[in-house]
Amino acid sequence: MMIPHSNPPHHFFSNHEKKTSFLRLWSNQLLTTLCVLFSFFTLVPLFSLLYLLIHKGLPLLHFSVFTKLPPPPGLHGGGFGNAIIGTITMVGIATLLSAPIGILGAIYISEYAPHSSLTATVRFIAKLLTGIPSIICGAFAFALVVLHTGQFSALAGGAALSILMLPTILLTSEQALMGVPSSYRDASYGLGATPFQTIWRIVLPEALPAMMMGMMLAVARAAGETAPVLFTALFSQQWASSIMEPTASLSVLIYNFSALPYHYQVQMAWTASLVLVAMVTGTNILAQLLFRRKFQ
C-alpha cells in the first residue's frame, strides 16, 4: 500500500531532527548497498568456476572421450567412457534400491497415518538421514557390502548412494502427496472407494509429476557424489563386465586425475568436470521443465 505523500514544509522538523533523519537515511542506504554487494559477491566464485570449466574443459571435449578408456598416468589420448557408464550404472542401482522404499514410506506417512507417532518418527529420522555425511554412507556400504563380498563393486557403490537418495526421495514424495487436495480423497471415499483404490487411482496419478521431479533431483545429486563411491566402487581402467567388480565413476576419475602431476590428466579432470556438471545441471533443469508445470 502506497500512501501518496508530499514533502513536509521545511520548518516541520527541528534542525536536530533533520540531522538524525539524514543519518538514518544515510545508514539505510549504506546497509542496502552492502547487502546487495555481499549478495553479488557470491557470484564471483560461481562465475570463476563456470569460466574455468569451459576454458579448461572444452579443449579436450571430443566425441571420443565418451567412447574411450581413461589414459594411464602420463600418457595422452583416451577418454572416460567407462566412468560415464559406471556413474549411470551406480545411480541406476541406487534408484532401484531407494525409490520403492522411499515412495512406499511416503505413501504410508502421508496417506495411511499422517498424524501417528510413527509418522513423526519417520519424518524426523529422514531429516537426520539427509544430514548424514556422504562419506558415512560410504563407510556403511564398505562395512555391509565390501567386507562381506570381499571386493569393491558397483553394487556397493550403488548401495552407498541409495542411502544418500532415500531421505530425499521420501521427503519430496511426501511433499508431492500432500500437494494433492484432500477434496479428491474425500470425493473418492464418498464414492465408496477403498483406501488402496483412492491412493492408486486418484492420489498417485495426481502426485506423480512432483514425485518424479523429486526423484530426478535426488538422482542428480547422487550422480555428483564422490565420497560414497570412493572406497566402495573404487576405480577401474577397464570397461566393467558385471556389477560385482570395481567400477569407474566420473567423480572418482576427477578426484584421481586432479592429484596427478601430469598436465594432460588434469586437463581431462576438467573435461570430466564439465561433463559431470552438465549432467547434473541438465537433470535438474529437465526435472523442472518436465514436472514443475503441474506442481506449482
Binding site: 568456476l49 550422480a223 564422490t226 565420497a227 578426484y255 576438467w270 547434473v280
Partner: peptide, 11 residues
C-alpha cells in the same frame, strides 16, 4: 548447491 563437491575441490 547443486555443484558436486569434487568440482569445488578441483576449482
Amino acid at each position: 548447491a547443486a555443484t558436486p563437491s569434487v568440482v569445488y575441490g578441483l576449482w
